[in-house]
Design a protein around this nucleic acid. Structure first.
Lengths: 159, 159
DNA sequence: TCGCAAACTTAGCATAGGCTAAATTTATAT
DNA sequence: ATATAAATTTAGCCTATGCTAAGTTTGCGA
């Protein structure tokens, strides 16, 4: 009744559900960059005392104007604060996001190391994975990591 | 020597390495959509006998013109073939990508289920995660999944 | 067969993120 | 104190992905 054509076997009635998944992916993309920036700004402030545009550009591997653009967006969205020609600071919102991102990053990394992924590959993959984990999954991942550590811990190392 | 300013504590010498990670992320984005489309086209062909633009649009939750645009890009890049006003087919290259994507999808889903993520959340997260796993990590993930199944299932349902 | 509805395409627009080149501001060093 | 270098911003461009509205084409049913 919902389909006028030839009633395909695939679940087109449920397309709304499936579509929602992809919608989340698209939404996530806009958040990913915010997280990467904010996390990096937090790192820079912690280690350097301040976050300069030029350092962000170098570390992210993009041009200065690109960073400038993004910082202005992040400022509009309330993650960062900065006055013209001055360095960049996090808002409370930004700090919260950075903290959260860092936790996820560490957890993913810990997991990847535990399952035997070489450090450099783990670093690279974590960067991509960390933005796509729900709280639920993060939770389960932590438990699984513990389980695996215990399992391999007192028997020895897995190959 | 490399830094003219005040020699920050963070590893700016190594910014090239870090930048490369983010570069990969950015590159991945353009591939993600291709994979999603191609995977879905394969599904539709398998279940319906053909992949229509209108079904892709419904399932992806985007407008028809958007699908049309993307299909034209994918055609230029050699993943799909289609003549005007006709349905969409995969090239060999497209089929290979679809197969690969599907394998990763199943593996990620299997893993998430194994660590106890509820099915609907697993579906949603898998959609985001599956594009960011290197071969190495995929391999380790498969082994970890087996290990966890064995550990938790040795009284139960494991084949 | 021929009209109408569904499917597809085109046109025109918006936003995000990328770039280079050219201002502009800030900071430094002589 | 001021020229110059470094950092930041502005301007203008590009591509990808999204949208709506308005054409085309296809194909089905009366």
């Amino acid at each position: 009744m919902a389909e006028d054509r030839d009633m395909p076997v695939i679940d087109l009635q449920d397309s709304g559900k499936r579509a929602a998944l992809f919608e989340r992916i698209r939404r996530d993309h806009s958040v990913e960059i915010a997280e990467d920036y904010v996390e990096l700004i937090a790192d820079l402030i912690e280690t350097n005392g301040e976050a300069r545009l030029v350092d962000l550009a170098d570390l992210l591997g993009v041009s200065r104007p690109t960073v400038n653009n993004t910082i202005q967006r992040l400022q509009k969205e309330g993650y960062v604060e900065s006055k013209p020609y001055r360095s960049i600071f996090l808002t409370d919102k930004g700090r919260a996001v950075a903290e959260h991102a860092r936790q996820r990053h560490h957890m993913v990394l810990d997991f990847l190391h535990t399952i035997g992924v070489p450090a450099d590959i783990a670093e690279a993959d974590a960067e991509g994975l960390e933005h796509h984990l729900s709280e639920q999954t993060l939770d389960c991942l932590a438990r699984a990591t513990e389980a695996l550590k215990k399992a391999s811990g007192h028997g020895g190392n897995q190959s």
